[in-house]
Structures are given as structure tokens and as C-alpha cells.
Amino acid sequence: MSQHTVDIRDEPTACQWSSQGLRLNYLDWGNAQAPLLLLLHGNGDHARSWDATAQRLRNHWHVITPDWRGHGDSQWSPDGAYFTSYFVMELADLMEHLNAQAASIVAHSFGGVVALRYAAMFPERVQQLVIVDGHGPSADARQRWAEEGDVARTRNWIEKRRLIAARPTRVLPSLEHAAKRFMQDNKRLSHANAERLAQHAVKAVNGGFAWKRDPLTRVFAPEDFTQETGEVWRHVTAPTLFLYAEDSWKFTPAVRQLEAHFAKAQGFVFESAGHWLHHDQFDQFIGVVTDFLSPPTDS
């Protein structure tokens, strides 16, 4: 397992863009004259999860790391609107805000779902794609949903949202408690990295700290993943690299069959890594991504 150290002196610039009435946060890592590279985090994560990756890639890329709505330092949706299409719209608005004709994208987990949809809708705007354990719901999840049925799933979604909205804000007594939560979710995460991730995942409140993330983001609507299909993916024209984690709950050998839906796809499986493979095997991850990404040159 490779560990990485983030140089906290090397801080990005915090910026904002607007989408659908929300004020959203992104980090600009400089080198604005270089080709644009977006690093997209997953559900429940935040932009600072990419710090080490951004620091390693910023010499050759103009790296931007956004916080999705309801995450990090971006605003929460006042009506709890956390549907996949809203996130795709945010990505489209970010591209317009940056005045970008095209970009390369590295995206983790749910961020990969958003990136793939965007690349299908706007193939001319995406030059290269790296999808980090982010191809959509697992086969087991889809099977459970099919067995549950649409009516029961929708009712459960309503009931879960009501329960979450009625709960008081959970207060953590210290940053150490937040760090321990990260380490519970990812057994391979070092204590130093857990502390760093926790620092950017919580905000100070009376009595301690609270998660920045809107708890309603935890509940996906039944309709959210209807477009994760070969019919949509066939519109993606960018060269696409799928990175899989051998120990992720998402991975089975059969999942690699999805690569056949893409015009230019390849895959790589990381051993001794879970869902957060870019933390678990950082050096190998950076090597594979760097070998794949090619900054476009003027012809």
C-alpha cells in the first residue's frame, strides 16, 4: 500500500460559480495556461480529497477541483434536490464559467457517473476520461432494486428523506472523531490522511464539529440511475480509462464488460485497493493516470 503526503503550504485558490441558483465552490490549482483537467469527487466526499493528485498533476495541467452541491464548501440545495441530472447541469455550468471549450476529466465514484453522462451529452467538450471505480450502481444493487420494485423503492425514498430531515444535527466532539469515521470507512487510510480529509469535511458548531455534507445527499431517488446504460454510453467519444479496485464492493470480473459500450475504452484493475483506490494505491494510481493522460498540443 502506498501512502502520500500533501504539502499544506501548497494551497489552491478558492473560487465560486453559480448553478441553478446555488453558490458552489471550486479550487483552482494554478497554471491557467495549461490544458484544463477537472477532478470530480464522489458522493459524500469533497474537493480536498484530490489534493495530492492535484499537486502531482498541476505542472502539466490547469487543475480544477469542484465541490458538488451539498458537499464541501458549496451550498446545500434548499429543497434537497440531489438528482444526478442536477449535478450534470452543474458540470455544464462550471465549464461555461471557466470559458472552457473542452477538458479532460478524472472522476471518482458518483463523480464518474456525472462525468460519463456529461461526456455522452457533450462529447465535443471532453477530451479524455478517467473513471475511478465510478461506473454506476453495482450489479448487486440493481438486483436488489429490481426485487424491491419501483413502488416500494419510491415509498422508502420518501420515508428515508423524512427521517433524515427530522434528525437533529450530529455534533462530533473533536476532529479526531471525524478522522476515525474516515478510517472506519476505509481501513487502508493512514491516520495522517484521515485527519486531513476530516479537517475539510467538517465545520465548527456549538459543542464541536458537524459534517459539511447535507445528509439528504445520502439518499438517491429511484429514478437517478436510469441513464447508466449502453444506449447512453455509446455517445461517449473520448478515450476512456476505467480504474477498478479489486476489493471494492463494486467490482466483479463481469463489470469489465461495460467497456464494450464505449468507442475507446480500456481498463486497469488495482490489487490491494478498495473503493478509494486513489488513496489506497496512490503512487500506482498517479503512474497509471499520468501514462494515460496526454496534454493536447496545438497543431
Rank of each mutant, 00 (worst) to 15 (best):
H191P: 02
R170I: 13
A245Q: 08
A139N: 11
P78H: 10
S294P: 04
Y86W: 05
G30E: 07
W17K: 01
V205I: 10
P215I: 09
A139W: 08
V113R: 02
A273P: 06
F268H: 15
Q3S: 12
F225Q: 13
L129Y: 09
C15N: 06
A34H: 03
D291M: 14
L37Y: 01
R181K: 07
W50C: 09
A178P: 01
H71D: 04
A198M: 08
D283T: 11
G80V: 08
A32Q: 12
W61P: 03
A14P: 00
F122T: 13
W17H: 08
Q281S: 05
T217A: 11
F282K: 09
V113Y: 01
V106F: 00
I158W: 03
E159Y: 00
A192I: 04
T217C: 15
H4I: 14
F251C: 12
S174C: 05
F122Q: 15
S85I: 14
A146Y: 09
A100G: 04
V205C: 08
L98G: 03
E148M: 14
R196K: 03
S299F: 09
T5H: 14
F225H: 13
A273D: 13
W211L: 12
R213L: 09
R117Y: 03
Q281H: 01
T252A: 10
I158S: 09
D79R: 03
F209L: 10
Q75L: 04
E176N: 07
S2D: 11
T297A: 14
H200G: 02
R125N: 07
A119K: 04
E11Q: 11
A54W: 00
G21V: 03
S248Q: 09
A146G: 15
A120V: 05
H177N: 12
A263Y: 01
L22N: 04
H200W: 05
A81P: 00
V88H: 00
A34Y: 02
A107C: 03
D133A: 07
L57V: 04
F225N: 15
S174V: 06
V113T: 15
R181G: 12
M89R: 03
A273M: 07
N206Q: 10
R144M: 15
